[in-house]
Design a protein around this nucleic acid. Structure first.
Length: 479
RNA sequence: GGCGCUAUCGUCUAACGGUUAGGACAGAGCCCUCUCAAGGCUUAAAUACGAGUUCGAUUCUCGUUAGCGCUACCA
């Protein structure tokens, strides 16, 4: 049975890299009919925050992918301690009574080699170790990494291939802290073992940690899971994405709040560090599930292309436009509804249904509805300069004449695309002006700006009454 | 410092020894056109560097350089 897990720690908001890890886990599970597990790795009590937990659920719920099982690490501390004890009992761990020190880093650097263990502690006799522990002296429980045996720790990564490292290069990492809390390595492996995780899919920053985890799994005596590490998502400056340095750009909610379709975000993230190998980019959820495999995962880090001015990757924006164009009118207007309301407009669903096809090819984000279709929602047009009404190679006199004639034509004509088209073109011919010179003053009068959806559709949606009223206002403006 | 990983257009990527090194986004230009879009076409743009293996290296090996990760009683 295939079982995968996404295990975020609630110490900051859900960021883009974590979201992608979640997505790849999910895709792999769905592709193989496996189980997707969400586990909150919250053993670092000091750094956990409710806000960040909320942010994780916020982000994941928006993605709308779901999960099959849910666990919270902090509720499984007994298991972690029990398994740590088991490792200790079989001699693969020992107590280290060395007081915590902040300067270990400098110490190891000076020596020119990695710190491996604290002298004396590894060899402490059972009696002395028990005596000091019994006396209440604090200690950390460390894994006893095999030394001097010329031993190599190995595993096969589904993305990075065969990995090996000399055991002599691995330090005696901690399993239990002096306050009795498990470390990440201990808690994570204990849970993975207990939850029968078959594939651990996570960021490449854990690649070297995996040697330690392999050691723990082996000491636990169960099966060692498969591993697949994912290349990291990095900033344009090559640095790792961090909220401190790059701000909210890295948060999933940035895309959500910018008006992205959740599926666009999923699609976009999949393209970062993975490829279907056949030049496809625009893909549905099912297509992604069908074709996802680790063979398509890259090994080098991928840059999320954002700038300080614009937090959105241009390719994501394009993808979103494409996905919006692929939506049915019904679905699009449903998605648009909350954004229209958020922009301060009130619109009937039936009317939005008429508007949606007008703007479908003109919006890149759902939020764009507010700037692209505002004149269709507003009762009153916001003020605009009268010069805008003057057509190309024309003047105010022409604009005025066009609008007055348009008014007359629009009064009786049927308000349908084809009738409007025929009537206005005929009028342009009568007036001796080009079609464009006829249409622009009307467009500006009706939309309040030069750039807008095609004229006849717009007039039709707006309706005779509103159009005539706005043309009258424009005529007044010119006089 | 030690250990590990990585290296193709500005960005995301394809090419798993033989291609004029392909696609996409972004850029430029043209077409279409009632404006804006959408769409179509064209264009510019890359194998980090140096050795080796080979008839032939983007591809395999080694070195250099660069970037990233781990090196905590964080995760």
């Amino acid at each position: 049975m295939l079982r995968v897990r996404f295990a975020p720690s609630p110490t900051g908001y859900l960021h883009i890299g974590s979201a992608r890890t979640f997505i790849f886990n999910w895709l792999y599970a769905r592709h193989n009919g496996g189980t997707m597990i969400l586990r909150i790795d919250d053993t670092d009590v000091e750094r956990n925050t409710q806000a960040s937990l909320d942010s994780i659920f916020d982000g994941l719920n928006w993605l709308d992918l779901g999960w099959d099982e849910f666990y919270r690490q902090s509720e499984r501390l007994d298991l972690h301690r029990k398994l740590a004890q088991a490792i200790f009992d079989k001699g693969s761990a020992y107590r280290d009574f060395t007081p915590a020190q902040a300067d270990t880093e400098d110490k190891s650097r000076e020596e020119g080699r990695t710190w491996l263990f604290n002298p004396g502690m590894r060899e402490l006799s059972k009696e002395e170790s028990d005596r000091r522990a019994g006396a209440g002296e604090p200690f950390v429980l460390r894994f006893r990494v095999p030394r001097g045996e010329d031993r190599t720790v190995k595993f096969k990564d589904l993305v990075y291939g065969e990995q090996s490292k000399e055991a002599d290069d691995i330090e005696d990492f901690a399993l239990l802290r002096s306050n009795g809390m498990p470390t990440y390595h201990m808690a994570s492996c204990a849970d993975d073992a207990d939850l029968k995780i078959s594939h651990i899919i996570r960021g490449q920053d854990h690649l070297t940690n995996t040697f330690k985890h392999v050691l723990i799994f082996a000491a636990l005596g169960g099966e060692v899971p498969e591993f697949a590490h994912l290349p990291l998502l990095i900033a344009p400056d090559g640095a790792k994405l961090s909220k401190r340095k790059h701000g909210p750009v890295v948060s999933v909610t940035t895309y959500r709040d910018a008006g992205f379709l959740p599926h666009t975000y999923i699609n976009f993230l999949c393209l970062l560090g993975w490829s279907p190998k056949d030049d496809r980019e625009l893909m549905t959820r099912q297509e992604l599930i069908d074709v996802f495999s680790f063979a398509g995962v890259n090994r080098s880090n991928a840059v999320v292309n954002f700038t300080e001015e614009d937090p959105i990757d241009p390719k994501a924006l394009w993808l979103n436009g494409q996905h919006i164009m692929g939506l049915s009118v019904e679905e699009l207007s449903k998605q648009l509804q909350p954004w229209v309301r958020a922009a301060g407009f009130d619109v009937e669903p039936a009317r939005l249904l008429q508007i949606a096809p007008l703007i479908r090819e003109r919006i890149k984000t759902l939020r764009d509805v507010a700037t692209v279709a505002d004149f269709l929602f507003a009762k009153q047009l916001p003020p605009y300069p009268a010069e805008e009404l003057i057509p190309q190679k024309g003047d105010a006199v022409m604009a005025l004449k066009v609008l007055q004639r348009a008014r007359q034509v629009l009064e009786p004509v049927e308000f349908r695309h084809d009738s409007l088209d025929a009537a206005l073109r005929a009028e342009a011919a009568t007036l001796g002006v080009k079609a464009g010179q006829m249409f622009q003053p009307i467009r500006v009068a009706v939309c309040g700006r030069k750039n807008a959806p095609p004229l006849f559709e717009t007039l039709e949606v707006l309706g005779r009454e509103a159009c005539l009223e706005r043309i009258d206002q424009a005529i007044q403006k010119l006089q």
